[in-house]
Every structure is written in structure tokens, then in C-alpha cells.
């Protein structure tokens, strides 16, 4: 909380658009229950880019599900000040639609008139470097291409808050770098608030105003740090590498401290 407040102060941002307060989430009952999240508090300012890093199974997807309203917290409160777009960990494309139709569905459901949808869907596909692939069906695309269609669909929702759950996991370095630029561009141009989950510490530092580290068993926030490096950042730059090393060490420490 204090760190978040400090960051908001540093950057001179407005009130939080999203406020998570002492949230806990338990799956199941009795002996069989899993504490997926415990006492998680996180404030995100409007226009902020927050990245979340943590080991597999520490509750990152669970946290995003709560924010998106797909699941209810067991304890604590959440305040979400705007519409939320969500890019799931799995691409979740509808198999009876082409790539273009998948993107256009998001446009349709947010009320865009029919004649504008196709053109806009093609623009979004181009932004994720899939120009010419709009007529393919999901099973005809590679895993990374499906992820990019899902990214285009997520941007099509045109929501002020965007949640992304490991969106670039299956991509080659070149396409990923391009999409980092693209996401950063959209973020700035549209003043989005983004929460971005990743396993890659450098990616988290490349993109985030603030990096949040999560620990497991129970899932919780163990550390957060604001990243004052100037934009545009380069994933392979020494600055990013040094910070990634120190944050990774911190994440490991936290893990051991808890286990030990």
C-alpha cells in the first residue's frame, strides 16, 4: 500500500482506478481447500502499467479473474472504476469463426455498427502483424498467432482497464519485441491502465511503471518496485538486465524465506 502510494506520488498520477484491499481467495472447503490468494492489496492508478511476476501457481490468474469479475473474492474488497478487457492465458478463440470474425465479435458486443467492424478488425490484426491471416480459422494458426489474434480481440474491446495474462508467452523474440512496442504505443495513445502478468522478469521491467512480485503458498504480494527507467526501454539493455537480476534474486529469497 505504502509503496503504491509512493509510486502514485512519484509519477504524479491521479487517484486509483482500481483498488484491491486485503483480498483473499480460497478454493474448495475443509481439508481439500487451496488458499490461492491471501491478504492481497494493490492500488493501480489510472494510466499506470503494472506488471506482475510470480512462480507458476501463485495465484496470478486468480487475481486477474477477480478483477475481471469472473469470480468473487472470499474476503476483502475491490473497487474497479472502469470497464475491463481481459486477455486470457489461453487464447480462447471461437473455433467456428475466422480470425477476423473473432476480433469483430468483440467489436459487435461493444456495439460497433456492422459496416465499421470488418475494417477495424483488419486494422487490429495488422497491429499484431497478422495482415493476410484474417480468413484463417483458429486451428489453422500457430499457437503464437492465436495469441496475437487474442491480443487483437482484447484491444478491440476498447476498455480503459486491460488485464493481460501472459499474453506473449508463445512468441519468438522478434515478434515479441514488436508487440511490446505495439502494446506500449496503444497504452500511451489511449491512456489505458494495464495489468500485465508474465514469467519473464526482463519483460516485466521492459513494460512496467511498477513491477509486483508474487509468492506462493499462499499466493500473496511479496514485493513491489517502481521502474523509473526512461522509455522506450530495450529488453536486452544493461539497465534492464541489472534490475531483472536483483528482482529475480529478491523473488527467490522470498520463496526460500517462506519455505524455510
Amino acid at each position: 500500500m505504502t509503496v503504491a502510494a509512493a509510486v502514485a506520488g512519484d509519477v504524479g498520477l491521479a487517484l486509483p482506478i482500481l483498488s484491491i484491499c486485503n483480498v483473499g481467495k480460497v478454493f474448495g472447503r475443509g481439508d481439500d481447500s487451496t488458499v490461492a490468494l491471501q491478504d492481497v492489496s494493490l492500488d493501480v492508478a489510472a494510466g499506470e502499467f503494472v506488471t506482475i511476476v510470480g512462480a507458476s501457481g501463485c495465484g496470478k490468474s486468480t487475481l486477474l479473474n477477480l478483477v475481471a469479475g469472473l469470480d468473487q473474492p472470499t474476503s476483502g474488497t475491490m473497487q474497479i472504476g472502469a470497464r475491463v478487457a481481459f486477455m486470457f492465458q489461453e487464447a480462447t478463440l471461437l473455433p467456428w469463426m475466422t480470425a477476423r470474425q473473432n476480433v469483430a465479435l468483440a467489436l459487435k458486443l461493444r456495439g460497433m455498427p456492422k459496416r465499421e467492424r470488418q475494417g477495424r478488425a483488419d486494422e487490429l490484426l495488422e497491429a499484431v502483424r497478422l495482415e493476410g491471416w484474417g480468413d484463417k480459422r483458429p486451428h489453422e494458426l500457430s499457437g503464437g498467432m492465436r495469441q496475437r489474434v487474442a491480443l487483437a480481440r482484447c484491444l478491440a474491446q476498447d476498455a480503459p482497464i486491460v488485464l493481460m495474462d501472459e499474453p506473449l508467452g508463445a512468441l519468438d523474440a522478434m515478434t515479441r519485441d514488436h508487440l511490446h512496442d505495439e502494446i506500449e504505443h496503444v497504452w500511451r495513445a489511449q491512456g489505458l491502465t494495464i495489468i500485465f502478468v508474465t514469467h519473464n522478469m526482463r519483460e516485466a521491467i521492459r513494460l512496467g511503471d511498477r513491477v509486483v512480485l508474487m509468492g506462493s503458498h499462499p499466493g500473496r504480494i511479496v514485493y513491489e518496485e517502481s521502474i523509473p527507467l526512461p522509455h522506450p526501454r530495450v529488453m536486452d539493455s544493461p539497465d534492464v538486465a541489472t534490475r531483472a537480476a536483483s528482482l529475480t534474486a529478491r523473488l527467490k529469497d522470498q520463496g526460500h524465506a517462506h519455505v524455510g
Partner: peptide
């Protein structure tokens, strides 16, 4: 996961059935 997608995309009961569940 399709139903969750529909919810996230803002589908109401009718559009959820028409665009996602029935297909």
C-alpha cells in the same frame, strides 16, 4: 472458457446465446 469470454466481451443473455452458446 467460452462463457467466460462472452462475459468479458460484455455479452448479455441474448447475445451470449446467439453468438457463443448456440454455435
Amino acid at each position: 472458457s467460452f462463457v467466460r469470454l462472452g462475459t468479458v466481451l460484455g455479452a448479455k443473455t441474448v447475445s451470449l446465446y446467439r453468438d457463443i452458446v448456440l454455435p
